[in-house]
Amino acid sequence: MLQVILDHYNYWIAIFLMMVGFYTVVARGNLVKKLVGLNIFQTSVFLLYISMGKVTGGTAPILDDRFQVYSNPIPHVLILTAIVVGVATTALGLGLVVRIRESYGTIEEDELDLADGET
């Protein structure tokens, strides 16, 4: 039982974080809060990838004669670039939020719907 928990704890937390982020995106009306939720979602995916690449007893994939076992470097590469792309897209989202605020005077989703006559 303990072994099952230890084997899957990373995945479970990744799923919990993903769902918290997902819920923040769909259920919260504030656009900045939505972007923070999106970041949490994103980090949960990072965590899932990196957890899958971990090898027990391994070390960071920087080659040295003293070590034999290394963790899988491929997820690291994928996630490394994803983080920087993530902040670039977050900046784009925040730029949109600033423009929406300037045009509508609010960043709450229901007030924006009201302003657009979509209720």
Binding site: T43, I50, G53, K54, G58, P61
Partner: peptide, 19 residues
């Protein structure tokens, strides 16, 4: 910190600087 513990030092570095 979690990424350091999972051996992903490059990722941890990026996350600390960016996030």
């Amino acid at each position: 910190s979690m990424f350091v513990s999972l051996d992903a030092v490059d990722v941890a570095f990026t996350e600390a600087a960016v996030g």
